[in-house]
């Protein structure tokens, strides 16, 4: 923690960066995102295993971008997000500097995407055990049981789009749910609209989701929508052996192909 504060102070004092996005203590001892713009503010920065939020979601916000060069305290999810956003031409190397801490407390400073790629290749990118188990359980169910499972959950969706706001990959200027030529997805929170929204959200994140789990944490109705993304992460890994957020210079899974992509259902 001290090493992060020390380095952040240096960066701000030397004016190398204009702002440091990091974790701080919120009300009721929760962890929240803080934006440090003055050297003395670095004392508020914390970094430990409770810092799970994917701070990369702030990188594309206009309010942040206009401040100038920034430094982000990045956990593994955030680092992968940065690589994925770079591959989608949303952020550029010179715009940011990343600080992170290894599990044994060593400070890491990444100046280029190549550094991040090298570090990520040695990190564990597997899905959390709890979610992996849940996906296996769902896969063992009958189709009708799965349908019922999701209907029970999706009937609670209030279409607040917190899942979308929390997702660092949902950066579209206009989301497909706001498209009305035609109105693909109903505006009000109907069961069908909720279902179609989740299909859309998952399809749009296919091959791009870095399984940070931010969508499910943001959901006020505790709908396990991250399972849909995780399932697709597994599909993409199994079929194409690609994990999102590992390479800053790669075509997305859905905008590339192999002429011998394998499937067993096309007649």
């Amino acid at each position: 923690m001290d090493s992060i504060r020390k380095r952040a102070r240096e960066l701000l004092e030397k004016n190398t960066v204009k702002v440091v996005i990091g974790y701080g203590v919120g009300s009721d001892n929760t962890v929240r995102a803080i934006f440090v713009r003055r050297p003395e503010g670095v004392e508020e920065l914390i970094f430990d295993e409770t810092c799970v939020q994917n701070l990369a979601v702030y990188l594309l916000k206009n309010e942040i971008k206009q401040i100038g060069k920034l430094c982000i305290i990045a956990n593994i999810s955030a680092l992968r997000t940065i690589l994925q956003l770079a591959s989608e031409h949303q952020i550029h190397e010179e715009e940011l500097l990343c600080l992170s801490v290894t599990p044994n407390g060593e400070l890491l400073e990444f100046t280029g995407f190549k550094d991040i790629e090298n570090y990520i290749s040695s990190c564990n990118r597997d899905l959390p055990d709890k979610e992996s188990e849940m996906i296996k359980k769902l896969e063992k169910m009958s189709v009708d049981e799965r349908w019922q499972f999701w209907m029970n959950h999706l009937s609670r969706c209030i279409k607040c789009y917190a899942c979308r706001s929390a997702c660092p990959m949902c950066y579209c200027t206009r989301c497909q749910v706001e498209y009305n030529q035609p109105q693909w997805i109903t505006v009000e929170a109907t069961l069908m609209g909720n279902f179609e929204w989740q299909i859309t959200r998952t399809m749009h994140l296919a091959g791009r989701c870095v399984n940070c789990g931010e969508c499910a944490r943001a959901c006020p109705e505790d709908i396990p929508i991250n399972l849909l993304n995780y399932k697709t992460v597994l599909t993409v890994k199994e079929k194409y052996n690609i994990s999102a957020g590992t390479n800053a210079n790669i075509d997305s899974v859905m905008s590339s192909f192999e002429s011998d992509d394998k499937e067993n259902f096309i007649r």
Binding site: E88, H89, Q90, C172, T173, D251, S255
Partner: peptide, 20 residues
């Protein structure tokens, strides 16, 4: 006004008809 510049369309176009 809507394009967010992700350039996926450029990767899929077989005619190099899309530029950035």
């Amino acid at each position: 006004n809507i394009c967010c510049g992700c350039q996926m369309c450029i990767s899929v176009c077989p005619y190099s008809a899309i530029s950035f």
